[in-house]
Nucleic acid binder design. Structure first.
Lengths: 202, 202
DNA sequence: ATGCATATAGAGGGTGCTCTCTAGATCGAG
DNA sequence: CTCGATCTAGAGAGCACCCTCTATATGCAT
């Protein structure tokens, strides 16, 4: 088999995650320092710095998304939606560094040029989410452009709650859960979306 | 008076904003290239790269925040709240690059080390917002910890809508306005916050 | 034991950025 | 016109980082 590896691929990604959450960016050199190996060893596994961060982004996205999509496997659509919305909160609570990576940064800021050989993987991951949302929207009774409403409710608002938690450490998770659930009820609950709120006069 | 300046401070900030929105980060060298002046001229006005980005962040925050806080000057509190929530959308629509700067990046990622001499300015800006929110929360009938609810409704949810618009260009602004207003009505409208939604059984 | 596959080890070339320093240009005041 | 103030002009020192290259170590199969 050859000489055993001193570090694993996941070691590199874990180190990159730690550095990213702390400093806001990563360099291959910093990862190597953090792992106490020469930078050459890093490049033996990953073709470039961008490959490291892209792989980390993919791993993190899939870790979140698997649980998110799985949340829809409830008996009825409404309960699945509630579980999915709250999943972002519980996941972020358990994995704040990964949540920071996904939702406090832009993917294109993390990865300067997305590697060619990971494009397919990224596209597949994106499609999975799109399909799950489309299905959830249909089951909830929001076909067509109603998808925008469902996505805002199940993704954007929960992410906003997570951002708030990451920025303001003293806010109780229960408060955020309530706010997310109340919004959900108003936006995609029974009888929602019928008529918009009466406009302001000015 | 001395030799007239070829570029103004605002020219530097405008250039920095443009580069930031496009590439996700700025260098003093890139700003100099963009303005077609030697980098020395940049450092004649700003002590460091961090001073440039910090000044830009402050200018942008104040531009948004002035309008936001002003929105509360309505006859009744509820209307003021609606105007404030929608202000984020109209401002972002008019200034997408500035909205990108404020809400698609973390301040600490933009500015490596916040300059000492701008700390007071930043603190003052933060306090202004805190005071305005506190006052709005009280007027809306959400004292004490109710502030968290008001902040989520008037800041976090509108920002989530803006992020969605910046990421997904084809979503109609009217859709986002409806979603923001409906959430607002549910979270801080008349009779809101009384009882949380009935919990899921699992 | 020998060979091959697989890793580590570590130096260093090339690049780009931050910031400094000196020289020169351009204005108003007296 | 001369002086002082203010700015541009531009080179370059110092530094970090990306990535490559060669040399060397370690394990399994035969």
């Amino acid at each position: 088999m050859g000489r055993p590896a001193a570090i694993s691929d996941d070691d590199v990604l874990d180190s990159a995650l730690k550095l990213l959450a702390a400093a806001g960016d990563v360099s291959a050199a910093a990862i190597a320092r953090s792992l106490a190996v020469p930078s050459g060893s890093i490049y033996h596994r990953f073709a470039s710095r961008d490959h490291i961060v892209a792989a980390l982004w993919l791993r993190t996205t899939r870790r979140f998304q698997d649980g998110f999509i799985h949340s829809f496997d409830a008996l009825d659509a409404a309960q699945g939606a509630r579980r999915a919305a709250l999943h972002a909160l519980s996941w972020a609570k358990a994995s704040p560094a990964e949540a920071t990576l996904l939702w406090l940064h832009r993917r294109e800021d993390l990865v300067t040029a997305w590697p060619e050989d990971l494009a397919g993987s990224a596209a597949r991951t994106g499609s999975e989410l799109a399909v799950a949302l489309r299905k959830a929207a249909d089951r909830l009774g929001f076909p067509g452009a109603g998808l925008d409403r469902v996505r805002f409710t199940l993704i954007d608002i929960p992410q906003a709650a997570v951002r708030r938690a990451l920025v303001q450490a003293d806010i109780p998770w229960t408060t955020l859960e309530s706010l997310v659930l109340e919004s959900l009820e108003a936006l995609i609950g029974p009888g929602a979306g019928a008529k918009p709120v009466d406009r302001m006069t000015a």
